[in-house]
Design a protein around this nucleic acid. Sequence first.
DNA 1: TCTCCATGTCATTCG
DNA 2: GCCGAATGACATGGA
Length: 700
Amino acid sequence: MSFESSRTSMFTFQSSVHSSHVLQCLDEQRQKDILCDLTVVVENRSFRAHRSVLASCSDYFHARVTNHVGHGLVISLPSEVTVAGFDPLLQFAYTAKLLFTKENILEIRNCAIFLGFRNLDKACFEFLIPKFFDSSKSTPTVHRKSRWKSKCCMEKSSVSKSSINLDDGEDNDNEEEERKNNQSLDGLQKHKGDKASCQEAKAQADILRSCSLVCQEKSKQTDYSIPCVDNCKTPIKEQICPGLSSKGSVSPATPRASSDSTDQAGSHCCSSKSNLAQVTCEKVVMVSSCLPCVPSLPGNPNSLGFMESQHLACNQPVEAEDVQRKGCPVGPFEGCRFMPLPRLESDYQPLCYGFPYSLTKRDWEGEGRRSTVEREVAEHLARGFWQDLSFQTERSAANKCANIPCLLPLHQDSSKEGCPFLPELEPGKREVPSREALLEKSSYSSCVQSGEDSEFDTEGESESCTSERVCEVQLPFSVEQIAALNRNDFQQLLKQHPLTQEQLDFVHDVRRRSKNRIAAQRCRKRKLDCIHNLEYEIDKLRTEKEKLLQEQNLLNKLKLKTRQSLSDLCQWMCSEAKLQPDQLQMLAKYSSPDCPLSALVTQRPSHSSSPSLHDRAQENIYPSSACSTADTPLTVPMTDSRGYHLTGETHKVPCATLPLRPSEATALRRLADRPPKERDNPSANSHVVVDASSTCTIDQ
DNA sequence: TCTCCATGTCATTCG
DNA sequence: GCCGAATGACATGGA
């Protein structure tokens, strides 16, 4: 398909359609029993197939049919292989899609291991089975190497009797003989490491070597539709990355009529609508081939769906961002990918041709909304794709690309490692093809929904990619560039690539929406952060408020006690001073209504009615918090039972500071400044000292 | 069937 | 006038 000449003039055309078309035709032939040269009997049920196809997918079949000449080969599989397990594998061999349910995945896996089906072990089973089943349950370990292969190609010390029979080259139509062979195979597998078997194997080393050579030769072959684990470094570009041709060019989107297989597979797994509804969450289709070009992204399990409905189109584009950023993904999963099946039977619609993945509308629209298993599967596969590259990206970035329907020049920034999908390119020479080359060699086709009705509403619409609904835009650069470049660089890019108005509109629209999408995400994140901050502030203020209220209550109590103490003190002083009513009124005049002195106007002090200050002090009515220490005692003159002062006797009350209003302080000052003779009080030597801070200190 | 939530997109405003 | 960012409003689909 390709030819090479000098490097300057060499061109390579690589069809992205061919492999899929061949596989599809083979499947159709199989269904019509055309050119089928093999009959596989499983549980008394016959399956017609092409030995070359099965040999390409299965080590077991490869070993069984390689040296077989002639037609009419009948291979009866042992009891370990069941119809439920083999039928999906056969479908997989012809469609690269494996449909399975939680119920039959174990059977499929066992059959796959037994038959040595490639591309299924780690990518499919190692993760899914533990996920499907309770982790507490012991899930069988999936062997990376098939039993058959491990025996035939790796364990050269053992050989089975069937190997001998395989080499005889005779048609073996005898079912009984086949069964014997199968039993031999089974016995070989079951008694791995068996000493006797090893000895027997040594005795038949030549036959084993023959088998080993067959396997090795097979591994070297690259013309299999499904890349092998062992030869993943040299897969057929066309098959694995159909949209990619050499030199980093991209072939036109792949028209692929795979709906039949998908529908058939879907109907196969779901015989009834009710059953379908029950198992949809667990039903996964695994697709091999082409998938590395449309990888899922780590941290973005939802990117499986990729395309929004608005962007669904027939020639679904390749996720160029991923390819660009990570290069051609080559991982242990060999391009396998899981896609949940539609949840409803009605969703089994004819698929959109042109894209290597047969996805229904719902599959593509399901971005961001998948079940847990689906997400985990996607994450698993995504990690598998990129784990070696340690690629990290945010979901936004994934969405950014996932929603942008644009075919891109692949491997513009491929992995530094050798990209097996670009075997013709030397490292460091993977350049972005020129615009002319791109447009000439391939179609960087981007199907963009031109209208609002971008969904595949009907089956007919889903199959058709009419020009009324879809406009195809070819771009010489990637969507990632469109979205990621700054303004100047973006303008520079546009200058470098003269675009049509349609292309410009598309590019600007993509850029605008991409920017806006990210902005919206930022905006929402800010909102959430703001809300969280406000909640924190609210809690903080509430706590502070409670604290202040408690302090306020304490101060109120202290205030009441202090006022009461002052009132008592004033009463005592007035009684001691024997103030006249006019004098009391004068005091009240300078006091506020809530001043204790105002009570004196209407209430004549009475020695008997109110306890003396001494008594109050003895009762320790003064709050300790407001009382002074011994350094600032409140010295109260002692009085006798009649109220007269006992000259020279004082009593220190542990309260010194009494908050007074200015008017009160003034009144007290005047009272204190009265000449002793004006006071009919023998204790003329007692006086009141009022300091400037309006606190009253009574001293003698 | 309704509600909630996440997300993308559009329209608008502002710098 | 263009562009980017921010944001409200709306639509959509899954849970």
